[in-house]
Nucleic acid binder design. Sequence first.
RNA 1: GAGGUUGUAGCUCAGUUGGUUAGAGCGUCGGAUUGUGGUUCCGAAGGUCGCGGGUUCGAGACCCGUCUUCCUCCCCA
Length: 458
Amino acid sequence: MAQKPTIPKGTRDFLPAEVAKRNFLFDIVKQVFARYGYAPIQTPSFELSSTLMGKYGDEGDRLIFRILNSGEKIRKADLEALAADNLPRFASSLSEKALRYDLTVPFARFVVQHQNDLTFPFKRYQIQPVWRADRPQHGRYQEFTQCDVDVVGSESLLYEVEMIQIFDEVLSNLGLPGFSICINNRKILSGIAELIGEADRIVDLTVALDKLDKIGQQGVIDELLQKGFTPKSIEKITPLFALQGNNEQKMELLGEYLAQSEIGQKGLDELKVVLDDIAALGLQKGELIFDLTLARGLNYYTGAIFEVKAHGVKMGSICGGGRYDDLTALFGLKDLSGIGISFGADRIYDVMSELDLFPKSLNQTLSVLFVNFGESEAKHALKLLREVRNIGLAAELYPQASKLQKQLKYANDRQVPYVVMIGQQEAKDGMLSLKNMETGQQEQLTEAEFLTKCEQLF
RNA sequence: GAGGUUGUAGCUCAGUUGGUUAGAGCGUCGGAUUGUGGUUCCGAAGGUCGCGGGUUCGAGACCCGUCUUCCUCCCCA
């Protein structure tokens, strides 16, 4: 026997029932995106390595899937680098292309490349798979789909507000009973780093701070010591550990703490505008929380940063995003601030499955099944079948004259609500039997009566 | 990238200190029922025990390698 086929780790097949649910999810996402004025674009699955490398931090670079050069190009391999044990350089000489790691960086490249064809502020959405060479885990895949909205060409904080509204509207429309939209601002984090005299170590600082709720105060201090922060600078951080209460209380305390930092104050001011606007507008199911420990490792964020967590399930963040002032500058277009967010479709799918939030009717892909009683009966049914399809209902004729038992079982398995039976005598009389599969009841109808009923169903 | 864990029928899983012919439930197929499904009863098919190597008279079980699963870390959606 041939060996059982498998697919690579971290990837999945989707059965019809799963695709139906995923499409349900995508449809709601698209609907909201479109309503806020975003238009869809698509970009290639893979980019030049130079486009992607270096944009996500060291950790991110490691997780980028690289595409091996093909054909004669393989001869370009830098064997000296290999001999010198310089593996990154050796790898680069083997590969010039890589699968996209997210949709934001390819989008920045897209904007720069097509800047003459775009009207700014440019608003786009993009729903496509991305790939990460990560260790698979619960809610973590090597191939997964992101749903991104981004706008570039405006610094207006109205877009921060808009992104929060989109989070709230999409997730509420999907039926999530509750979720936290966490917000922070990189400028606040920069201000803190500046104040403690470690302005150039902001990444190490934020990564450690990010773990506060996981490893606790002492854990953060230990990590900072390990990273080489001086006890003196760490001491200056400790007031932050006491930060508690609601958003206003946290902001007030932080206002005093950051009094001497211009950039920190700016971050606070931005945050306040956004929080006030949202407070005035209100949210449906979402809860907006200022979370100072929210850091996000992606190093292109410069202003607001977001992360969303679903309530009632054990799952990492289901959405993320933030403002980036310099991303297009990396590709040669300066002074173009952007902000964007991403919905992790696969994690949201998992959350919805766990909470049983998908409508049951999604599995119904066929409304009417015509039973096949034989060659001449089938030919007769075919004409009626065409009319049912013209009305707009999904309908089909069973392909062979199997036992009725088998045909009904097929209808049952496919959750078909109505089965039509036309035997020899019925065909002659222009009559048919319509069986309701849910109630089991059956009625005799003329063909005209049946078609009228189909129109009502549609 | 570090550590741990898992893999036996289509699916979920049993399988004792290594010992003849590897089991169950569900599902599938056939029949009870030749034009009536979802329930019931009877019967059948379906396995190089993830893959490769090793130890042994003998391996599903022990050892090594490899792939895969899930978990913790790292990072993230």
